[in-house]
Nucleic acid binder design. Structure first.
Lengths: 214, 214
DNA sequence: AAAACTTGACTGACGGTCAGTCATATGGTA
DNA sequence: TACCATATGACTGACCGTCAGTCAAGTTTT
């Protein structure tokens, strides 16, 4: 029973990973299920034994990626030895939150062809991360580095803005436009959370290191 | 020649309106082009004479609706007799920006079935309204009621948050959750624009009048 | 033997194409 | 003015290819 379950889980994961790869290469719409099963060398029915629809595997991909991220974020958020600002720095310094897993493929993600992928990811990201971040904000309130009346709602708003406007790949901004928006976002975050100006400088650290690369 | 051209425009609009109606009733995906042409009593080819794809008419619907809104917004924004805060009040008081045209149908729009409709609408709304609002913010800076370093980027962030989180129908929030988020949003807007607290009270006026209805 | 898993041919829906029809307009000719 | 030829734009609907999803039957595992 255990080995079966494990095997089943493996198959499921194999489909997820294969689909993820193909979706990122060619886009969700341009990837027929036939392509996935051909790549895997299995029959159509096998796919539908594990997933009930095409969208279903999309949701699974997002859930899988997001679980990894949530794990990391939660670990930091729950570390009682860290103050709120340190937690924020660890979570937000460098580039986007979602980068950890997707990493080098991020470029491909920005194809207009991948709207479906983004859409689901963005919404889920906001919904799952906001309660965790809200805890940190509350901690920051207690530590007197933040001053926020509605921690959850505020962080949810900020995450939404950041996710959809910057990380989501929905808007096709140029490199410079992204920089401008990230700088503005830092100010908005500081003001919204009631933190001192420049408290969130770490959000844009890497921006200037990489600025001259292209 | 003129009458021909006009007739052409009418047909195009007829398709847009028919498609809009069916999309809102049954969702974008669940509305085959065959349904649109059947409703109109024309042939498939007629549709493709005016639109090159199914997505094409979606974009046209959004463009049409948005043009109406942009017109209204621009009129207020360009009124030299109004100060920035009055403009903001006129544009933001009451409920969502996008309500003017969609109005009573808003409920239907919240079906999960209409993601495609939202997505395009949301993005376009942000892109087209942000430069106009930015002008108002700059005016507010000059009038010393606002204090914003990055007017365009800030307003774009705020619009994105508001649009996707609240107006977009992407998140299925309950009535109470929406109220909480709108209250939080007011504070964020005030802080981000550097306005005095409660300056944007008008954003949530109608909230409390309607609160007891359901 | 039962249950879990796999197969792949098949179906139906649907987006999109295209050769062709028809009414009206334009314009040349006598 | 009457007549014919040519062009144009709107429209038709049969047809095609793709693809998500089904299912009855087979194979493997427990």
């Amino acid at each position: 029973m255990q080995s079966t379950t494990k095997k089943t889980e493996e198959r499921r994961l194999e489909i997820i990973k294969t689909a993820e790869k193909l979706f990122k290469e060619n886009g969700y719409r341009n990837t027929p299920i036939d392509a996935i099963i051909k790549e895997m060398g299995v029959a159509k029915g096998t796919y539908y034994y594990y997933f009930k629809s095409k969208e279903d595997v999309l949701a699974a991909i997002v859930e899988y990626q997001l679980n990894l991220i949530v794990q990391t974020v939660e670990q930091i958020a729950n570390d009682t030895s860290l103050d709120a600002l340190t937690k924020m720095r660890l979570l937000l310094s460098g580039s986007h939150i979602g980068d950890e897993d997707t990493g080098e493929i991020v470029e491909q993600l920005h194809l207009p062809v991948n709207r479906e992928l983004h859409e689901v990811t963005n919404i889920q990201t906001v919904l799952r991360l906001s309660p965790i971040f809200a805890k940190i904000v509350e901690q920051g309130n207690r530590e007197n580095v933040f001053n926020t009346r509605y921690p959850l709602e505020t962080i949810q708003f900020l995450l939404t803005g950041g996710q959809f406007l910057l990380d989501g790949g929905l808007f096709n901004f140029s490199k410079q436009e992204i920089i401008d928006r990230r700088l503005a976002m830092q100010e908005i975050v500081e003001k919204a959370l009631g933190a001192e100006p420049r408290t969130f400088d770490f959000m844009n650290n890497k921006l200037f290191e990489e600025e001259n690369n292209e």
